[in-house]
Design a protein around this nucleic acid. Structure first.
Lengths: 205, 205, 205, 205
DNA sequence: CATGAATGAGTGTTCATTCAT
DNA sequence: AATGAATGAACACTCATTCAT
């Protein structure tokens, strides 16, 4: 490795690190104020620079959310695919997917909040076509798990799986709105309680 | 009734009807595009008038959401209070509250969507202080039902009621995002399935 | 006089009276809030009718000021012409013109205030060409009186009459800004004090 | 002085200079068109930039007049206080205050015009409370000078000082409406003539 | 005569974005 | 990398004016 190469690598790495830091800041602000309601200046203020300076790092405000959301979704699908590829039964797959979802909230909380609040509006933009694609796949995945569970006799036969899917999807991601990483409950603990509720119900037996 | 009174009544009624119609239009647009992202001109376009004309009927964009949300909340609390005052046990109260919630979604769908998406940001404005108050009361009400159910032995003793409350709150209102009054499922049918899931779980027994 | 004519006369008279009443109201509002800053609705509110209703009586907001100002100026020039045609000397003419000016303030206070505050801006509009014409004649008249007074030896020979004219013009009309018809001083009393100051100075002798 | 300090000083100075230049332009436009009737775009046009660009330098149209007027008043009171603190008699104080006033017109002509035309309306806004305070002090100052002059026997005993004060106030500031710095008369020359008129009258002796 | 609803041009202001330095 | 000044389109809102009733 020549010093020259060393330099260009370290500057490229430094640049990537700066981008990531700025994106983390932006995600936090977008999540708390809402993407549309957040001004570029607010993001810049939070990062300690001037509004115009952000444009050295990013093409536009839109490209910031874009990167935030796609990073999160890539990570999420990697985790989901790991679960789906491990040959578990419906019930165990259910448990693992829920658990991974809460872990995602733990790791990407601002991104999940943005995803939950803004993806419906953003999806109208062709640039964010992958959001619709991801939602389609998400639905497909969950329905398959639920349907197989019914078929295998693990889940109740009278379930409207389309309906149950919607309830699950909504609750899982909305937890990002109130989850605090520093609170008393770990992501795994929350997942356990949630799984217990959905699998066994809240009635005493 | 003199003709005079008749006239003033009918014009007052006509005015109220026009307001209500415009508010319904505004609610629809706010719900689908988001309050902040919706321009006054878009609302006016949807109503078939010009932007400025809305200001003959309303003071501001803000006063429109205000009226939309407070009308919904007033109606909702009337229904909730009817249930809470009828002396039912925890489990039946739970069922009735959930059912009423889905009926609200049926009757006030756009308002519920707005409430769900925007109330966090709007609540920062003193004018919308009633949103925080309503949320506080909502939480109090549901926690009381859940806690009593645990105490009475109707609900499982190991529930983290604070956590369950959050899950219920999220799912119930988020259903407004996908519910269609003209779809195959009535509000009562959706409520029944939801109640079954939460009370008994999705496992086969 | 036929009853027919009587009717049309009385309605014409009633209409003229209504106009005059509305104009008096408008003048008051224009004077206190400023012409540009006053909305048509404010004038209508003060008159106890709705904004649009004013347009039954007047073509436009502009035509209201127009009528207010031209009525005042017509009255003023009639009084000035009476003085100028009575063959008085420079000093007595001076005294009489000042006295008439203060009487004008007494009778047309709101109009004078509007004239003072707005005529400079209105004069740019061709419709108000008579304002410039009136100002020209006003200057001519006063300069003639001052110059004759100097020539006749009644006024000091070292006066810059152009300068003195401006001072007089400004003070005389500006008095409309603070004069109250119901205050302790009559228009004639104020005129006397003003004349004494300008003619003899404020030094003790 | 390090280059660093040099830089930050020169940019801060450049910024202040730009502000001052824009304010001078704004004052000119406000004075000639009237504050309310002037649009922000007109100010910007006069400055050779676009409407929105003004908001990089100023918070609002209001904050521009605010700065214009308060700068003028601060300067004026500094000059007045210098005169009042120099232990002169009533007559000489009178002469010096008048002279300083005309010098103010010379230096702050547009600001004086705005002050004269708009302060009555602006004073209704709490932000401009200092206008009322300044007017109160102005009146107090002049009345004290006139009253002392009467007491000391320098001014005529039969003066209604309240009335004379109003005349003086009006004329002095209204001169800003016609004074041209490049005209034939200097501020001091105008002051001399004005003082002569008020002190000794215009009658020949 | 007056109302009530609407128009449409224009106002102050915001904000994502650009670019010379 | 970042600044600071500017752009220009868009926004919420205002208001003189119109007109059917």
């Amino acid at each position: 490795m020549s010093p020259r190469r060393r330099d260009s690598e370290s500057t490229a790495a430094a640049r990537a690190e700066r981008r990531a830091g700025l994106l983390a800041t932006a995600a936090e602000v977008f999540a708390s104020r809402g993407y549309a309601a957040t001004t570029v200046r607010e993001v810049a203020d939070a990062a300690g620079i001037l509004g115009g300076s952000l444009y050295y790092h990013f093409d536009s405000k839109e490209s910031m959310v874009d990167e935030i959301l796609s990073t999160f979704l890539t990570d999420m699908w990697a985790a989901y695919d790991r679960v789906l590829g491990s040959g578990l039964g419906a019930r165990e797959t259910f448990q693992e997917l829920v658990t991974e979802s809460f872990r995602m909230i733990d790791r990407h909380r601002p991104a999940v909040v943005i995803y939950q609040n803004e993806s419906k509006h953003l999806a109208a933009n062709p640039r964010f076509g992958y959001l619709q694609e991801s939602q389609r796949r998400f639905r497909e995945t969950w329905l398959a798990v639920l349907d197989r569970g019914v078929l295998d006799g693990e889940f109740r036969a009278d379930l409207d799986t389309g309906l149950i899917y919607r309830f699950i999807r909504d609750t899982v991601w909305l937890a990002a709105g109130w989850y605090r990483g520093d609170g008393p409950l770990s992501a795994e603990e929350i997942a356990r309680q949630y799984i217990a509720m959905v699998l066994e119900g809240i009635l005493s037996t």
